[in-house]
Amino acid sequence: MTNPKIEFKDVNKIFSGNTKNELILQDINFQIYTNEFVCILGASGSGKSTILGLIAGFIKATSGNVLFNSKDITRPDSSRTLVFQDYALFPWLNILDNVAFGLTTKKHKQNNVREKALEYLTLVGLGNYKNHSVNQLSGGMKQRVAIARALAVDPEVLLLDEPFGALDQQTREAMQTELSRLMTKTKKTVLFVTHSVDEALKLADRILVIGGKPGKILLDYKIDIQKPRDPSNNQLTSVRNILLDKLFQPELFMGADI
C-alpha cells in the first residue's frame, strides 16, 4: 500500500483559555490516502474544524504528529488549501483577482496569472462574472469563487470547513452536486467537514464521525456506493442509521459523566 497523504498519529489538542485549559481532541489516529473524498462528520464543538486547522497548519497539535506526505506540518502552505464557511474572499479585489490571489505568490508566480484564474473561474461557471465585486454576488456564488481560488494553486489536498453551512437548502444541494462534479474532474484528496449526515452521505467515499467531549473518532466508515447516489437507496439508508446511531450516542452518555 502507498504512503498516506495525511496521517494523524496520537494527536491531542488542548486550547488554553484564560481560566482553564480545554482538551478538544484526544488520541486522534487516522490516515487519508490520495484521491479519497473524506467527510468529517460531527456536532458543533466536537473539534472537527480543529482537525482541519491542524492539517492547514494554522494551529499545532499539543502532542502527537500531523503528517502530510510523511512530513510534519509546520505552517500553512498552498499544497493544502482551506475553504471557509464565511468564504473569506478579499473584498477589495474583484472576482478574477480573488481567484488569482494564490497565483501571485512567489511559489506560483507566472506570466499568465489572469488567464489561469479565468480558467478556474470558468470551471465553477462564473467566467462571465470576472469583473464583479465580491459584494455583488450571492452566497452560493461567493463560495464557488472561494473554491475556484483554492483550486487555482493546484493543491494536493482541498480542505472544506462546512462550506455550504451558510447557504439555503436549495443552493446547498446544487453546490453539493457541483462539488461532486468538480472533484471527479480535478482529482484531489478532499477533506470535507460537515454536521449534516445527508451531505456526508451524498459526497463522501469515507466518513469519519467525531464526537464526545473531548472529541474522539467514533467511527471510520467506507461507503462503496457509486456516485451520484440516490438518497432513498436501501444500502444508503442503512449507512445513515449507523451514522445517526454513532452521532447521537455520545450525547446520551455525556450527561451520565462517563
Binding site: 497548519g57 500553512p76 502552505d77 493544502r80 488549501t81 482551506l82 471557509f84 473569506a88 505568490t105
Partner: peptide, 15 residues
C-alpha cells in the same frame, strides 16, 4: 479568516 485564507493560498511575509 482573511489572513488565514491568504496563508493557505501560500501568502506570507511581505506578500
Amino acid at each position: 479568516n482573511l489572513i488565514r485564507a491568504a496563508q493557505t493560498l501560500g501568502s506570507r511575509g511581505l506578500h
